[in-house]
Design a protein around this nucleic acid. Structure first.
Lengths: 210, 210
DNA sequence: TTCCAAGTTGAATTCTTCTTCCACTTAGCG
DNA sequence: CGCTAAGTGGAAGAAGAATTCAACTTGGAA
């Protein structure tokens, strides 16, 4: 279990940080699949360095975003402690989308538009039960109609995210209107029929690639 | 103006139809950017034939989808004649999405996820005023709250479409729940503030590529 | 200082798709 | 029939990105 990875040489550590910073900035604007070469060039290193440090893109994504992902998990935990479950749900969704608004790449990651790094998968495993709990409480309190499922909440997340993606370049706040629509929709739509299968939510967050 | 294009030789015409049929089927499943080579191979022709007939992908898209697009325009016109404007809007959005559910490629086209073929651009030019009129009537009749704009309707379209795209493979009807959420949301959300610019709707439908 | 394991570079290779082009085939007019 | 403009096939070259790797540099322990 002790995986003793010897520490990096000082120059290597400097390059590593530089690559991470550069990759983060590029991905914030261009999305997750910026070519490795672009990152290396922007950071002023060779591609070999890139590959030595992050042999798989997954490695890069993990290193880049795990902090942010933890932040989002924190939001879910905080929301779960709300007395007002409906408010907790709305607050959580808004916080999560605000994070995504900061970085296109992070949005793609959190919404499963990538061979989701493990971090993300684990994040959803942690957050889904919290959301499910909030939904159950909100339904019990009459804040949401019966029939709303975690998959509907995930769908709402995707829905607002799609507007964010589509409008980033020319109307960076339009997603807030979409969020209001989605939240009001969950509260007022009739979702009592054709409940989606339990497995749908995992697919939604993990089967998007290609 | 008389653009006299001589008719195709009989064998060429046969190949053209074959390519169109094949392309339609592939794009229904794989989306608009199926490689030309895949289409040619599936149709049993060479790529030369593909390029001779459809030098630009646009040409292929126009030939493939203009009929369907006309159908959708027809839906918009029919909706515009509804007495009940709110019902007209809901009916139109559902018809359009049903068409998109039949073909992934057509969905990408109608939602601007491509260097939109001219057909599509013209379609939106025709439909947007009809939708705007319906919205105005629905607001006047108290079926929609003041503040709803055509851009919000377009956003709702994108929103449901994103759920459709995300769930096609494992929950092909999930989008109908999303549609109910979006429609209920438009009816109940507070959209009175920060109205989007008039130009936003064009960007939404035309600036998605890359 | 010396030395070498760690680190770096960038050209070369491999993949994929796009696009062009020319030698070859064929429909159908006269 | 015979001829030719129209049509066809598929190899070849261009472009963008992923990956590898052998020759070269350098931090830092001794």
């Amino acid at each position: 279990m002790s995986e003793t990875t010897p520490p990096l040489r000082r120059d290597a550590e400097r390059n590593r940080r530089l690559l991470l910073r550069t990759a983060y900035e590029l991905m914030a604007v261009k999305g997750l699949d910026v070519p490795y070469e672009d990152i290396a060039r922007a950071a002023g290193t060779g591609m070999g360095t890139m590959y030595r440090r992050f042999p798989q893109r997954q490695d890069l994504l993990n290193a880049l975003f795990s902090e942010h992902i933890d932040t989002v998990i924190g939001f879910a935990e905080q929301a779960a402690r709300y007395d007002d479950a409906g408010a907790g749900l709305a607050w959580f969704l808004e916080r999560q989308l605000e994070v995504e608004a900061q970085s296109r790449g992070l949005g793609e990651l959190l919404r499963g538009r990538s061979q989701a790094a493990e971090v993300v998968q684990r994040a959803h495993e942690r957050m889904t039960p919290l959301v499910a709990g909030l939904i159950a409480r909100a339904v019990a309190a009459g804040q949401l109609p019966a029939g709303v499922t975690p998959a509907d909440f995930a769908a709402a997340h995707l829905m607002v995210g799609s507007v964010m993606d589509a409008s980033r370049a020319f109307a960076p706040h339009l997603w807030r209107r979409a969020l209001r629509v989605a939240l009001a929709g969950l509260r007022h739509a009739d979702l009592s029929g054709d409940a989606p299968d339990e497995t749908v939510i995992d697919h939604l967050y993990n089967d998007q690639q290609k």
